[in-house]
Design a protein around this nucleic acid. Sequence first.
DNA 1: GATGAATGAGAGTTCATTCAT
DNA 2: CATGAATGAACTCTCATTCAT
Lengths: 188, 188, 188, 188
Amino acid sequence: MTGTSGPRKRADAQRNEKALLEAAAAVFVASGVDAPVRDVAAAAGVGVGTIYRHFPTRADLVVAVYHHQIEACVAAGPALLARSASPHAALAAWIDLFVDFLVTKHGLAEALRSDQDTFQTLHARFLDDLVPVCAHLLDAAAGAGEIVPGVDPLVLMRGIGNLCIGAGDPRYDPGFVVGLVVAGLRLR
Amino acid sequence: MTGTSGPRKRADAQRNEKALLEAAAAVFVASGVDAPVRDVAAAAGVGVGTIYRHFPTRADLVVAVYHHQIEACVAAGPALLARSASPHAALAAWIDLFVDFLVTKHGLAEALRSDQDTFQTLHARFLDDLVPVCAHLLDAAAGAGEIVPGVDPLVLMRGIGNLCIGAGDPRYDPGFVVGLVVAGLRLR
Amino acid sequence: MTGTSGPRKRADAQRNEKALLEAAAAVFVASGVDAPVRDVAAAAGVGVGTIYRHFPTRADLVVAVYHHQIEACVAAGPALLARSASPHAALAAWIDLFVDFLVTKHGLAEALRSDQDTFQTLHARFLDDLVPVCAHLLDAAAGAGEIVPGVDPLVLMRGIGNLCIGAGDPRYDPGFVVGLVVAGLRLR
Amino acid sequence: MTGTSGPRKRADAQRNEKALLEAAAAVFVASGVDAPVRDVAAAAGVGVGTIYRHFPTRADLVVAVYHHQIEACVAAGPALLARSASPHAALAAWIDLFVDFLVTKHGLAEALRSDQDTFQTLHARFLDDLVPVCAHLLDAAAGAGEIVPGVDPLVLMRGIGNLCIGAGDPRYDPGFVVGLVVAGLRLR
DNA sequence: GATGAATGAGAGTTCATTCAT
DNA sequence: CATGAATGAACTCTCATTCAT
């Protein structure tokens, strides 16, 4: 805005892509990840061609939309483990974080659960990145004797993800049920 | 042909409707509750007009499809409470039943979670019928001091329902996570 | 129009299909066989869905459009052979008929030559039906010692077909070149 | 870098244009003259804008692509007439040359026949250059009493061109039908 | 009542063409 | 001059829904 007029084209394109992602995120929240490409384009104020240029398939777009947020979650795992009172506390905090993330980005959980071919990629990406973090936290907690051993992190994460579906409804409370799950993990 | 046409028609219509429901159930399992109306009509061997005559909206059809199964679940609640060792055991057994139901009728959980307007009716019907049963079981278990008090049956049921989404995937195991929830309910 | 209101639905559908074919023929002449489906639908005064119902693929439509005309040509072969002065005269007359047909239905020749996948079916149909007739005429003329033996009917017909491309242009005269071909066939 | 930039640029531009034409020729052979502009640009390693700068319309590009080859054909006419045994032999040889040209550059014949507005220019150019050559050969042969008089060279050339359409198909043989045409030209 | 033909909105996708950099 | 990002018209195809028979 001040003096960035030099190599502008690439800068513009990047800005454009960012605007695209934000618009897509908004549209996904409002209409789900199945929202018409046209709607996303309109929301971003670009032509549909621009969407296809940047993200050839819908999966590419969805993955991109949630990429940064996934990364943040990945980073939070070790950080929490380092500064929490106990591994179980870290696990609980991380799950809370994950739930907050999903609940905030309403529509994400729905996307995650979709077994449509279109979202295979999203699925993969999501789980490939997050499951190891979860596994690490589970191992730490199990190693400390705080939780039952042998919990499959993938199963746990998909469960948590599922529980976040429909978070917008005032009559539903994902956090409560997730709390039951976390409680259920504890060794008694 | 003249005298019997009155009652006969009704019988025929009922038969027709039943065939419709069975066909719809099969199609829903195969293609989800968003399956094209034409597919349902074709599976039932009727015209699409007939579907619309019997079930003006898709929700009506979906509700009807799952009606009997919901009723069975409703009936199972008191029965289990009567013959189980403890209220908590009855609750656990009933939840298992519910999970089995959802998991077996693949696609139902997905339909349940949908917040699309189309399924509002289904939602309502499903919960209106089942929540009281669940509430009764929760009350009994809480009254016996076996579980934490104040669990909202609606929230619990929606959580359970959500956990059943994606049950077909071999890498996911709804039962395990539901087990954690049930364990989490117990007073420690 | 007078008393055909009995089994009207099927009658209507047939009428509709006929109107469709006529409209499609007109559009094909005007815009080629690649004309947008919408244009055909508009010309026929129906929705696009109607086109797709009657003719699931474009090839189906194209084949149907030219079906009757192909049949007429098929029927003309033996008839001409029976009533012509010589086999060569019959062959020449039949080729004239074929050329008239292609030239009249401007756009047909273009369709025929297309090697696009869409028209494979048309190609096949066209040649499967007409080549045998042509072969019969060629055999008769060759048997009578009037023309060179061993002419491949398929090659001849595709040549004739090609020559009819662009018949609308006043500066071109397919008939003349076809005449040269027919003359070239004669034993000298 | 300073003094040579004037002439250098022109040299570069010429080189660029040549590369463009070669790339376009290759793409036209592979995908037909309707190939996406992008494909041509990509094959040439330039941006689409460059294509549009050099050749504002597609016709301009197509004409340019085939320009050199047309010129070669033009030059061959008198040469053949000079060194052939008879005018008819020269005509036949020249037609063979023309056919070889069209058949080799698969896609050219298709382009030639197109009556689309886009190719009007190509048409014109092609015929304006070649028709006189053909006329000359026809006149010579007619003058020598070898062929029928009064053959319109334009009609003949378009016929020949049409016959070359679909040359790639193993079941078709343009050369054979062209041979019939050439034979048909002879006085008997 | 049942039928299924017809309708047409809507979604995905491709590309010719323009124009800011 | 060259580039290629952006635009948006155009096209195909699908299906929910209506309604004449």
